[in-house]
Each structure stands twice: as structure tokens, then as C-alpha cells.
Amino acid sequence: MHQQPPHSAISRPPIVVLCGSTTYWDQLADAALHETVAGRIVLAPGCNMRQPHPLWSDLKRADRLKAKLDDLHLRKIDLADEVLVVNPDGYIGDSTRREIDYAHSLGKPVRYTHPV
């Protein structure tokens, strides 16, 4: 009897990773909503270090955490099929620019929420 491959081997929705400044946290959440409703698996920043929290209240700890999260986001780009840059008013900061460059180096398509 022929066995069916697992569902993920047959097909899976595209994976999109959101990149952009956490200054625009609400816009990132809105983009995640729209991408999810469009049937995509969404990877996004997992925390907003611009909001106070005990995990990053100490400056040295915050610097280490920021570096760790920056690297984690690059791994999300590795997993994604495409990148969506959330860039209200065309804004792209240094971290986001680095992520875009990384995505391009991997040949990942990059879309933008606003004209660049």
C-alpha cells in the first residue's frame, strides 16, 4: 500500500518574515494580521525593546540581548520564502537595511509596505 507523505511535504503556505523598526510596532502587528489572513506563515520580531521590561532594564544585559535578537532575526530570514519590510513613510533604519541586504544576499524576494 502506498503511504501519503506528511502534509508539509505535499505543500505548505509561503513563509514571510517581517522586518522594520519596532518604533512601528502597531504597523508590524497590522502587517502580520494581513499576511496571516492572506494565508502566509508570518515570522516577526518577538519583542519590542523600546517598551520597558525587566528582561532588558539593565543596559549591559540589553546590549547582549539586542545582539542575540538581531542574529535570531537573520535566522528567521533564512527560514522565510520572502521578506516584507514594514516601512511607514519610507523609513528604513540601519538594522532593517542590514536585514534587507542579508535577504538579497540569499536571493530572497523583498516587498515593502510603502514606496522606498
Rank of each mutant, 00 (worst) to 15 (best):
N87P: 07
I77N: 00
D94N: 08
A32E: 14
V83Y: 04
P13A: 10
Y102L: 01
Y102E: 00
K108L: 05
P45W: 07
L33V: 10
K76V: 08
Y24V: 01
G20H: 01
L33H: 04
R50V: 05
D70L: 08
I10P: 01
S105T: 07
P6G: 14
T22Q: 06
H2T: 09
N87V: 10
L43R: 02
A31H: 02
T23V: 14
H53E: 03
M49I: 04
A62R: 15
Y102M: 02
R97S: 05
A38R: 10
A38Y: 05
E35S: 03
H7D: 06
A9N: 05
K68Y: 11
P115D: 12
Y91D: 15
T36Q: 04
Q51A: 14
E35D: 04
T23Q: 15
H2N: 11
I100T: 01
P115T: 13
Q27S: 13
V83A: 10
P54V: 15
H114G: 01
L72V: 07
A38N: 13
L28H: 04
P6Y: 11
A62Y: 06
G20Y: 00
S8K: 03
A9R: 06
G90K: 00
P6K: 13
P14W: 10
D94M: 08
I15Q: 08
H73K: 13
L69R: 08
H7S: 14
D89E: 15
Q51F: 08
L28V: 12
C47W: 05
K76E: 10
A62M: 13
E35Y: 00
H34K: 10
I77T: 01
G107K: 11
P5L: 11
D101A: 15
P52E: 04
P88R: 02
Q3C: 09
L55A: 15
W56K: 10
S57H: 13
L84D: 04
G90H: 01
D71N: 06
L74H: 09
G46Q: 10
L74T: 08
L18K: 02
R40G: 02
A80P: 06
G107Q: 12
N87F: 13
V116C: 09
S8G: 05
Y91R: 12
N87H: 09
I92K: 05
P115G: 15
M1Q: 07
T22P: 02
H114A: 05
G90A: 03
H2C: 11
I100Y: 00
D26V: 01
V85A: 09
L18M: 09
E35L: 02
D81W: 11
D30T: 07
G107Y: 13
D58P: 01
Y24F: 12
H7F: 14
K108A: 10
V116Y: 08
R50F: 09
E35I: 00
G39Y: 03
R12L: 15
R97T: 03
D89G: 15
A67P: 01
G90W: 01
R40I: 08
P88C: 08
S57K: 09
R61P: 00
V42H: 08
L65G: 12
E99Y: 07
Q4M: 14
I41H: 06
L84Q: 05
T36K: 02
A32D: 14
I92Q: 07
D26C: 02
G93Q: 04
H7T: 14
Q4W: 11
W25P: 07
R64Y: 12
I10R: 03
P88Q: 03
D26E: 03
E35W: 00
S57L: 11
S95V: 15
L69S: 05
